[in-house]
Design a protein around this nucleic acid. Structure first.
Lengths: 210, 210, 210, 210
DNA sequence: TATGAATGAGACTTCATTCAT
DNA sequence: CATGAATGAAGTCTCATTCAT
């Protein structure tokens, strides 16, 4: 609103309202870059994906891509981080409702979340498999998501002892990882339904035993 | 009886006894190459793995690697094929014993096989995800292993209707895929035990329902 | 008038005058690459010529060479194409003057053109012999040059029947091909003079007979 | 005739008659190798021709090829040398008959020889263009053939002064070089006939002038 | 002596990253 | 700050040549 003077004479108003649009534009750009990166990583794999294609897919100059993400690894990290945020938010939302859910509803909620993040999951798998930022990022993400699932589980079954929560939540995460792949098999619907049974049976048994 | 060939692929000399050593050395070399390739693919991923490193790890000149596997893709196919053979053989052996096994024993047998193939499984995952020989080999392997699992299931529960066998065996495969990853987590032993529970519960329920 | 661009391809900036320098530099770079390629192909032959040397000779990074010519074959095609353009232009110019020339003058003009293109001719020979882009480019070039010579001949001797034009122009082309090689022999001057005699005699006889 | 004992017990009679068959076999082998080499060089060009293919085409083990020709360059030199011998012999034969021939007959004889050596000429061209054994062999061959043509010319026209013989024979060689290429054009027959005219006209004029 | 598996230098090509404009 | 041409390290693959059998 306040300025289209994108090229010259833009160095007034150092902070307050002047740079807001700039920052907003930056955010949009970052989002577009992450979208494109997620897409291309998922399609081609980490190594085969090229920075040039990612830039092109988001209509960004390659130089600008490097301004926001100073390396391919940083870009991958960005994709991973955003996934972590989204998955975390989804899991937190489920955790909030967990106390009032039946086992079946809880499983449905988790499966729905998984399906919603399906495209990002593919990119995620590729990036985790690529030996990129192996230890730092991987640990982090694992921790974030794992911890959130533990949170959901605790909220759902407050009586479950901590050691069981740890084991069961890891198992739940691993079981849910299979969902996006099942969704690509021939009989996707039947398999997802079957997975719902598996999860519900496991969850019920785990909570009862605990 | 007369040989010390310790490595693998040990169907001994059915040839004219003339230049057995030559062929034997070739087989050893191929096995060493596949071992190294499996290792490096698992460590680095398909693209990041370099033919040079695979050659070096098996103490082979790069030219010799290319004599046996004329391209990186062919090498990946070799790794996949060998995995298919080993997994197939293991599953067939289990299928033979299946009629006499309890659910718990069957699950144990499957888990043991999975653990035995653990290192190869990691390479397998990477190679299946890589956009290599996508359709031909992937379909084939999937078919071979999937079919073998269906065979095991049929042998174990002959009364299970065909459509259930199909769905349940796909689900079993996907569940077992998680095993190698679980084995790399912190509390590996507890997680494997937990997976045993999951599988036994699912298998029992599936057979009872069917 | 305002420019020092000494190299070639000097059809000056018909663009929007905005980023002329960028395009001009590209043109210069392409010209330098083609010059170096022509030289190296001529010296070493197609296969023995290395992209690395061609890049080095034109003070270009290997990556830049590949930006302009995405493969060795494309580079060879570029060399061929430029030769075709230059030879075509030269022959067209001769055709325009042909009606007013004596046989001797016409032969001189053709020989002069041949000598002017001498260095490119050597590269051309090598590239035509190489089993590269065999059919497409080869046919094309042959057609362009052959057709232009036929044009010169028709302009010079309009009464010559079409079938004779075809045969005679092919023969002229083949005779002229020997010129660059003669120029590298010991007694170059004498041989060129001799070739002038051969051509004049043949041309005169052919036109008279026809 | 004297022995079929090709495998064993052939090490008696160290020199005289015993090793004759061995030597004969060697000669055959060399001839087969040169034939294959000529063929493959002509087909693929010097660089693209592989020692392995040349060995295979002559049913020779690669190691044996290297026993007779210790390098690819040596093999090329062998091909060139044999061509020189054959062309030299042919030209000598023509020289012997030259005094009794008309210009037309002489040209016919030369063209016939050229056509007879056509396949070898192709290999020759490829090898001369490849910058192999550039100076030594090339000079040699050029000298041998050039000298022989000069011999033919002197025999045909004893009155021609030496300096003219030199120039005319070089020109004749260069004109004849075009023959194999003309033979591959569309209207081969017409072009060969045309070339006969060119050569006869040039030869007649040169002898008359001289 | 014949054989052909083994060797490794070096070619073509790609692409992450930089920096002049 | 944006742009995208330029850079060069590194990867896959070939093939002349050697040498153990």
């Amino acid at each position: 609103m306040s300025s289209q003077k994108s090229t010259a004479a833009a160095d007034a108003a150092p902070d307050g309202a002047g740079r807001a649009p700039k920052r907003a534009r930056g955010r949009q750009r970052v989002a577009a870059l992450l979208d494109a990166a997620t897409l291309v990583f998922a399609e081609k794999g980490y190594d085969a994906a090229t920075m040039t294609e990612i830039a092109a897919r988001s209509s960004t100059a390659i130089g600008s891509l490097y301004r926001f993400f100073p390396s391919k690894e940083a870009l991958a990290e960005g994709v991973l981080r955003r996934y972590g945020e989204r998955a975390g938010a989804g899991l937190d939302a489920i955790a909030a409702r967990a106390p009032d859910l039946t086992a079946g509803d809880l499983v449905d909620a988790l499966l729905d979340l998984m399906m919603a993040l399906k495209s990002e999951r593919t990119a995620l798998k590729v990036l985790m498999d690529a030996r990129v930022d192996c230890d730092n990022r991987r640990q982090y993400l694992r921790g974030v998501v794992q911890g959130r699932i533990a949170g959901v589980l605790s909220a759902y079954a407050p009586a479950l002892p901590a050691d069981r929560v740890a084991v069961v939540s890891v198992m739940l995460l691993h079981l849910m990882k299979a969902v996006p792949e099942l969704a690509e098999e021939g009989a996707a619907a039947a398999l997802i339904a079957e997975m719902r049974l598996v999860l519900r049976a496991y969850l019920t048994a785990a909570v009862a035993d605990g």
